[in-house]
Design a protein around this nucleic acid. Structure first.
Lengths: 160, 160
DNA sequence: ATTATATATCTCAGTTCTAAGCTGTTTAGC
DNA sequence: GCTAAACAGCTTAGAACTGAGATATATAAT
């Protein structure tokens, strides 16, 4: 007979719960530690991580509808309005009407916004690389695979 | 000659940056997806994740100084005052003076707080276990090892 | 002992968001 | 075409913090 867990084996069940909690704890700590490096880097340019996320998305994908950005960076509809307002005030982004849907707006990088994100992206990437440099290339590849699988599975549970 | 990266090989350097960014993206997504499950669970009991973190710490470690909790859950000094105030208002925690240092206060679970955290912790643990159940036991063990290493290394960089 | 410095918590103003509801627009069903 | 539902973005109130400074106490240096 195998010794694997089943629902009538409290000891094995507890081991699974404990292992899961431990994973959650170290995942949260790892995320937090890397996030602090990332935020410190973008803060040098007077940006929050959310503002940076929008600039980065526009930099790589070109003009996007506000709703598209919203799904990408996971904020509420009020949040995306607030964030884009801030970027507009800073002169980094402008709103542009959508010809095919008069409810929707595009967010577009201004020349200043485009110059800023192009200028700071390399340093941002290096800050991230430095923050994760505690893992070898092989370990980073393994971690990426595991985190991708974990993230997709957990996100799928949400929508179910 | 080996083909490994060095500082004069732009292509290899870019590969390392790209891999690091990819790890950061999937790490952030995995953390966010699991965190949402965790927060949805504690929200069922009218608690934020920070409030839950305090109750959990007190549950497992007994009375703690506010400063100890602050380091553990990583909030500012203003934040710990605010959070403990809220828990006191809810009747879950009380402050207690420290006999050896009149500046310091202990946070102590009230009977109601103790009953609450004992009652909801099992469901919390199961919610986490469910959220990370997309990985096998082996994968969870691997992920735990990698995240611990990553977290410690990234945190060490901060203090340097 | 006295002074300087560090520490623990609190206060308060300000920042960054969320949640709920609103407006204007589009799409689907009849 | 007309109504109903869904949708995109905006508004508002307020929650959950942060950051800087204030207060009281403790520790160290002279």
């Amino acid at each position: 007979m195998k010794t694997s867990a089943n629902k009538t084996m409290p000891a094995a069940r507890n081991a699974e719960l404990d292992d899961s909690l431990k994973l959650w704890v170290v995942l949260a700590r790892a995320y937090g530690a890397v996030a602090r490096h990332m935020e410190a880097e973008v803060a040098r340019h007077e940006l929050t991580s959310m503002e940076f996320g929008i600039l980065e998305a526009l930099h790589h994908k070109g003009p996007m509808l506000l709703g598209e950005i919203q799904k990408k960076i996971l904020v509420t509809s009020g949040g995306i309005t607030y964030l884009v307002d801030r970027l507009v005030t800073k002169g980094l982004v402008k709103r542009q009407e959508c010809p095919s849907d008069r409810r929707a707006r595009y967010a577009v990088l201004t020349p200043a916004g485009s110059a800023l994100i192009s200028g700071i992206f390399p340093a941002h990437a290096q800050a991230i690389a430095r923050a994760v440099s505690g893992l070898s290339a092989r370990e980073r590849a393994d971690a990426t695979k595991l985190m991708r699988k974990l993230g997709l599975a957990a996100a799928a549970l949400t929508t179910e």
